[in-house]
Amino acid sequence: MDNNETNNPESHLSLLKQGDKNAFKIIFDTYYKRLYAFSLHYVEDQYIAEEIVEDTLVKLWQKRNKLDKVENLKSYLYGMVRNASIDHLKKDKKFVRLDVKKHGAMPLKEQYIIEEETHAILFQALETLPKKCKKVFELSCLDGVKYKDIAEDLQISINTVKSQRARAIELLKSYLKDYPFYLIFLASL
């Protein structure tokens, strides 16, 4: 297998069908966070989204012998996660959020894939932050927790919370310099 194939999880589909655990691990590692962000958009609950994605990937492994008609693994996985997420919402009698104005006439499936890819870029950037910076940024900017509560929770001073938050934003700006959307987002924080 050449280097391009080893970096392309789609090429691991045939190996997965043969029961190759290493191919499954590569697929799992490549898609887990993206599928999680995709499911989270629907269910709006971290634990449920994790469960849906884990169940989906377990089903992929269990049904590996029956994947002959699957040509595009990524689309197949997104479809499985979307269906499982909608099924969960139906059981909980919740409705799927649709923001048609946001993306105009773009097909719904493409809207969610674009949003998921956007989330994946942010998750990747967050992983580059030092541990404390990342935690402060997530609590402050993503979860909306007040400085005082973060300081108490992490047992640090409010000034440390502020400096770690500012440091995280600067590091993210540097990492995301090629993504104007994120620069606008980070500037608004």
Rank of each mutant, 00 (worst) to 15 (best):
5 E>R: 05
6 T>L: 08
13 L>G: 07
13 L>N: 04
15 L>N: 09
19 G>A: 05
21 K>W: 03
22 N>E: 10
23 A>R: 04
24 F>T: 08
25 K>A: 06
26 I>S: 06
28 F>T: 05
28 F>R: 05
29 D>M: 10
35 L>E: 07
36 Y>M: 01
38 F>D: 05
45 D>W: 01
49 A>G: 06
51 E>S: 14
51 E>I: 00
52 I>M: 10
55 D>A: 10
56 T>P: 01
58 V>T: 05
60 L>K: 08
63 K>M: 08
64 R>F: 02
69 K>I: 09
69 K>W: 03
70 V>P: 07
72 N>D: 15
72 N>S: 09
74 K>I: 03
75 S>F: 04
76 Y>L: 13
79 G>V: 04
83 N>A: 12
83 N>T: 14
84 A>G: 12
86 I>F: 09
87 D>L: 01
87 D>N: 15
88 H>E: 15
89 L>Y: 06
91 K>L: 11
92 D>P: 00
96 V>R: 03
97 R>L: 10
99 D>P: 00
100 V>A: 11
104 G>S: 02
106 M>E: 12
108 L>R: 08
108 L>F: 12
109 K>W: 09
110 E>F: 04
112 Y>E: 11
113 I>E: 15
120 A>G: 00
120 A>W: 02
121 I>A: 07
124 Q>I: 02
128 T>L: 10
130 P>A: 06
130 P>Y: 04
131 K>N: 12
131 K>V: 11
132 K>D: 14
141 C>M: 09
144 G>I: 09
144 G>W: 01
144 G>D: 09
147 Y>S: 08
149 D>H: 02
153 D>A: 01
153 D>S: 08
155 Q>W: 03
155 Q>L: 07
157 S>F: 03
160 T>Y: 00
164 Q>G: 02
166 A>E: 10
169 I>L: 13
170 E>T: 12
170 E>Y: 06
171 L>N: 04
171 L>V: 02
171 L>D: 14
175 Y>M: 06
179 Y>R: 07
179 Y>P: 00
181 F>A: 11
182 Y>E: 04
182 Y>G: 03
185 F>G: 08
187 A>K: 13
